[in-house]
């Protein structure tokens, strides 16, 4: 039987489109997320807001904890490994994780090389701030891209910046004449073939989600209108007053992101939002990890 893992892994991301992927730290939270309509969950020991607060080195989660979450839900389960830490990725593959997030939210294990993701059968999602980063990750084997945003802040400004940057560069590549693409590939530090794909299709070769700082249904709708194909929500849900209600509202906001009337209803009475930290108050910019 012919099996092109990269194609199959891209295909799984296609099935997640229009959905919300939620950070969870316990099987109970995973069940709440699934019941609220999450299309996948990200299993991690501490949500990014707490990672940020705790400081210190942040690593892959305990496989036992991840397995507990795999047993609690039927939707796909993702988990994070450190940038460049291929041994953590091997461990996550061994417990049959559905998607690995090689994530800047954890402490990077390698300050030069990302994981060679083509060596793995399980799919990888990676963060990117711009088109160059996105295409470099895809060239390394990532089958899904998300904006880096700034995790654990509840501040959407950086996710917006990254999504706008990526879309603007895609439009720029799309409108180039073909003989300009070679130089564009050189400038972006990516292979010509990937630039040609973007030129021809006016999109990334893989699914592109928004992540980092999404805290409200309006944030989710904003990211979808800016061109995201789905949304990751981390600390925004389980750091808020009413996680069940907020999670369900964000799921519906992603489906009907163009319907302001419905968004108004969804935004009503959600309880206290995550407090959040402003961009200027952050000491650690996770988005600067791994380029």
């Amino acid at each position: 039987m012919e099996n092109n893992r990269f194609e199959l892994n891209k295909n799984l991301a296609q099935m997640l489109k229009g959905g919300v992927i939620m950070d969870v730290t316990t099987p109970e939270q995973a069940k709440i997320a699934e019941a609220a309509g999450a299309c996948a969950v990200m299993a991690l020991e501490r949500i990014p807001a707490d990672i940020r607060a705790a400081g210190g080195v942040s690593r892959m989660s305990d496989p036992k904890m991840i397995k507990g979450i795999q047993n609690a839900v039927t939707i796909p389960v993702m988990a994070k490994c450190r940038i460049g830490h291929f041994a953590e990725a091997q461990i996550l593959q061994a417990i049959e994780i559905d998607y690995i997030d090689e994530s800047e939210v954890l402490s990077p294990a390698d300050d030069k090389y990302h994981i060679d993701k083509t060596k793995f059968d399980v799919p990888f999602v990676c963060g990117a701030k711009d088109l160059g980063e996105a295409l470099r990750r895809i060239n390394e084997g990532a089958s899904m891209i998300r904006t880096k945003g700034e995790s654990g802040t509840g501040d959407v400004v950086q996710a917006v910046r990254h999504m706008r940057m990526m879309q603007a560069e895609i439009r720029r590549i799309g409108s180039m004449s073909e003989d300009e693409l070679f130089d564009a590939a050189k400038q972006l530090q990516v292979p010509y073939e990937l630039v040609l794909y973007v030129h021809e299709h006016k999109k990334l070769p893989v699914v592109n989600f928004a992540a980092g700082g999404v805290a409200t249904p309006a944030d989710a709708a904003l990211m979808m209108q800016l061109g995201a194909e789905g949304v990751f929500v981390g600390s925004g849900i389980f750091k808020s007053g009413n996680p069940e209600k907020r999670a369900a509202a964000i799921v519906k906001a992603v489906t009907n992101y163009n319907d302001a009337k419905m968004l108004a209803e969804l935004s009503e009475d959600l309880g206290e939002a995550m407090v959040g930290i402003n961009e200027q108050e952050i000491e650690l910019l996770m988005a600067e990890r791994g380029k």
């Binding site: 309509g37 299309c39 996948a40 939707i75 799921v251 489906t255």
Partner: peptide, 13 residues
């Protein structure tokens, strides 16, 4: 897609 998500949204909407 995810049948749990679609099943829920079909009802909620």
């Amino acid at each position: 897609g995810e049948s749990t998500v679609q099943g829920k949204l079909l009802r909620d909407l």
